[in-house]
């Protein structure tokens, strides 16, 4: 969906090298439109995860610009970055819940950027936040789990909590770093469907990186193929022919 909808996120000439002289991302430029799921696919070690993490600067970009909500994220100082991150939700491969907190508390960590540390410590969250947390819990099908500890949940349930936590932020953009890689195939589909439905209803664009091409084709509105730190494909799922896949992953034995 590279139609002329207003762009939410605009990445310009982004490069990242962990070791000087060995760039993982090579001069990437991308515009993410105002809705729909954008899937980034590509072989392991090609910088998909680095790209996603550069957007909210969990990984510091080496050079380039990332424009979001009218500002350049790369140029922000610590407190500016913190305020900007409040508008970017993130879902992780290993769920990254705080294991010893309850599901409800995990959801409310999505509001920590808005609540003073002292009030957060006393668990004095605004009524509206708590009401919305219950709403989201119902939406992800975990309505009765509010007071259960996160470490008592299954992988699929944890990832639902992860999605709900990200949506608690009322984000303008959702990043998902391999959200289904630790889940079984059935749960993966359920989680992706959940993410698509919830974000579609709220008009939140999603950038997700995944290694499962079929899953990407099924759920993504736009697919970005990466190889060796470069974008080699950018288009709809229909255009993802075997030739394109070969150019992304190399070789052909793995294609049926």
């Amino acid at each position: 969906m590279t139609t002329a909808t207003p762009t939410t996120l605009s990445i310009k000439h982004l490069s990242k090298s962990y070791v000087a002289g060995k760039p993982v991302l090579k001069d990437i430029s991308l515009d993410i439109a105002d809705c729909g799921i954008t899937a980034i696919i590509g072989p392991s070690g090609t910088g998909k995860s680095t790209l996603i993490r550069c957007i909210n600067r969990l990984v510091e970009p080496t050079s380039g610009e990332i424009h979001f909500e009218g500002g350049n994220l790369v140029a922000l100082d610590r407190s500016g970055l913190r305020l900007a991150r409040r508008h970017i939700g993130m879902v992780f491969q290993e769920y990254n819940l705080v294991e010893r907190l309850t599901v409800m508390e995990n959801l409310l960590t999505g509001r920590l950027g808005y609540v003073s540390p002292f009030k957060a410590w006393l668990r004095k969250f605004p009524e509206a936040d708590i009401a919305r947390a219950f709403e989201l819990l119902d939406a992800v099908g975990l309505g009765s789990f509010a007071n259960q500890r996160a470490d008592s949940l299954s992988g699929g349930q944890r990832q639902r909590v992860g999605i709900a936590r990200a949506l608690m932020q009322e984000p303008k953009l959702l990043l998902a770093d391999e959200p289904t890689s630790s889940l079984d195939p059935k749960t993966s589909v359920e989680v992706m469907a959940l993410m698509r439905d919830l974000c579609h209803a709220r008009g939140i664009p999603v950038v997700v990186n995944m290694h499962d091409v079929e899953l990407a084709k099924r759920f993504a509105d736009r697919i970005i193929g990466m190889s060796g730190g470069n974008v080699v494909y950018d288009g709809g799922p229909a255009g993802l022919t075997d030739d394109v896949l070969k150019s992304i992953y190399g070789g052909e034995d793995w294609l049926q």
Binding site: N56, L58, R82, L83, A84, R85, R86, H87, I88, G89, M90, F92, N96, L97, V98, T109, G110, R111, L112, G113, P117, G162, R165, A166, Q169, L175
Partner: peptide, 9 residues
């Protein structure tokens, strides 16, 4: 990392 990503102080 997840809490940092939410913009928590």
């Amino acid at each position: 990392e997840a809490l940092q990503a939410t913009g928590s102080p």
